[in-house]
C-alpha cells in the first residue's frame, strides 16, 4: 500500500498522521516549515482556552505520537508542488530547497490550516506603526515568555485593551466570517494577564461575545474572579495621545450611546483567521472548490465535514474554516479514518 499523504503538520495534520499510523497505514507527513506543530508552535501559544492548560501539554503528546512512530515518514521544509490524480490515489511532486522527488500516494489529507489575519490591513489601528499595538500572536509569545511589557519602552503596562473581530466579520477587509476563537482567546489572554499582574487593568471591546457552549464559563469567570472589564462597542481607530507615549482608543460605547476616547498603554488586536497560504496553494494544486471566503469546501459539510467529494481527498482542521484545536484534532481523526477506508479499497 502506498502511503497516505498528510499535508500540514499542525494539530489537525498531527492528529491525522498519528491515527493513520495507529491504523497501520504507512503515512507521509509533509510540512512546509522546518518544524511540526503548526500555528500553536510557530507563535508559541501560551495557555489554551478554555481550560487554561499550557499549550505544551496539548501539543507535546500530539507531537510525540508522530515523532516516535516508525511508520510515519516526516518530511519537513517540504512543499507539494504538483499533484495528479491517478486511478488510485495521487502522484505528487515534493520539493525541498535543493531536491524534488515524485511519490505515489494512496490518499491525501489536506490539513493546511489558517494564517492569522495581517492586522496591517486594518490600518485604522496603526498595527505595524505604533509598537504598542500588538497582535494576538505577539501577546501569546509575551505570555509564553512571561514578560508582559510595552515594546516601545520595556515598561510594564497599566492598562491594556483587547479589540475583538479584527479582520473578522468585516466586509471592508473582505472577511465577513467569524473567527470563532477571537472572543475566547482574548478573554483567556486578559485572564492570564490579570492572574499574573492584578495591577494591570484589562478591557475587552466587543460587539458580540461568542464564547459558545461550555466556554461561556471562562467569560463569566473573567469578570467574577479576574475583574476583566467589558465595553460593548468597537474601537474604530487608534491614535497617539498627546506627547506620543500613550495610545488612544477611539470608539463608541454602544450601550451608553456615546463616543469614548480612552488612553491605553497597550492595545491587543484579536486578529482573525484566514485561509492559510498552504490552503490556498492546496486548493489550486488539487483543484478543490473554495467557498466565497477562500476556505476549502467539503462536499456536504453537515453530513461529512472531512470529505472533499473528490476521489481520495480529505480535509482536516482550519483549512475548511476557523476552528479550535480540539475540533481540529477530532477532524484529523475523522479524515484519517476516511482516508484509510479509501486507501484500503
Amino acid at each position: 500500500m502506498n502511503p497516505v499523504l498528510v499535508l500540514g503538520g499542525g494539530p489537525a495534520g498531527l492528529s491525522a498522521a498519528a491515527e493513520l499510523a495507529a491504523l497501520g497505514a504507512p503515512t507521509l507527513l509533509v510540512e512546509r516549515e522546518s518544524y511540526l506543530g503548526g500555528n500553536p508552535q510557530r507563535w508559541h501559544y501560551s495557555l489554551l482556552a478554555p481550560d487554561l492548560r499550557p499549550a505544551q501539554e496539548v501539543m507535546g503528546p500530539l507531537l510525540s505520537r508522530v515523532e516516535n512512530h516508525p511508520s510515519i515518514e516526516r518530511r519537513l521544509s517540504t512543499s507539494v508542488v504538483r499533484a495528479e490524480l491517478r486511478p488510485k490515489g495521487y502522484q505528487v511532486v515534493l520539493k525541498t530547497q535543493d531536491s524534488t522527488e515524485t511519490r505515489d500516494v494512496s490518499a491525501v489529507v489536506l490539513a493546511t490550516g489558517f494564517d492569522h489575519f495581517d492586522s496591517r490591513r486594518k490600518y485604522e489601528y496603526g498595527y505595524g506603526r505604533y509598537p504598542d499595538v500588538l497582535d494576538f500572536k505577539e501577546v501569546e509569545q509575551m505570555l509564553h515568555e512571561d514578560r508582559v511589557v510595552r515594546p516601545s519602552d520595556g515598561k510594564p503596562p497599566r492598562r491594556i485593551a483587547w479589540i475583538l473581530c479584527v479582520g473578522s466579520r468585516d466586509v471592508q477587509v473582505g472577511n465577513p466570517w467569524c473567527c470563532r476563537m477571537g472572543c475566547v482567546v482574548s478573554i483567556k489572554q486578559a485572564v492570564e494577564v490579570r492572574q499574573r499582574h492584578p495591577e494591570i487593568d484589562a478591557y475587552v471591546y466587543y460587539m458580540d461575545i461568542r464564547t459558545y457552549g461550555l466556554w461561556e464559563d471562562l467569560y463569566w469567570k473573567s469578570m467574577q474572579e479576574y475583574g476583566v472589564k467589558f465595553v460593548r462597542g468597537r474601537i474604530g481607530a487608534v491614535t497617539l495621545a498627546e506627547g506620543g507615549s500613550r495610545l488612544i482608543a477611539t470608539g463608541e460605547d454602544t450601550i451608553l450611546s456615546r463616543p469614548t476616547e480612552v488612553p491605553f498603554d497597550m492595545i491587543v488586536l484579536a486578529s482573525g483567521m484566514e485561509p492559510g497560504t498552504g490552503t490556498k496553494e492546496a486548493a489550486t494544486l488539487f483543484g478543490v472548490p473554495v467557498g466565497p471566503e477562500g476556505f476549502l469546501t467539503p462536499r456536504v459539510s453537515d453530513l461529512n465535514p472531512v470529505d472533499s467529494g473528490l476521489p481520495g481527498l480529505f480535509f482536516a482542521g482550519a483549512a475548511t474554516g476557523p476552528k479550535a484545536i480540539p475540533d481540529a484534532v477530532t477532524e484529523g481523526m475523522g479524515a484519517a479514518l476516511r482516508a484509510f477506508q479509501y486507501a484500503r479499497l
Binding site: M207, G233, R234, G236, A237, T250, D253, T254, P259
Partner: peptide, 19 residues
C-alpha cells in the same frame, strides 16, 4: 451589528448629539 465604528469616525458625532 451595532458595532459603533461608524460613530467612531464621524466628525459630527464629536460635536453634536448625533450618531
Amino acid at each position: 451589528l451595532n458595532c459603533g465604528e461608524c460613530t467612531t469616525g464621524c466628525p459630527a458625532a464629536r460635536f453634536y448629539d448625533f450618531s
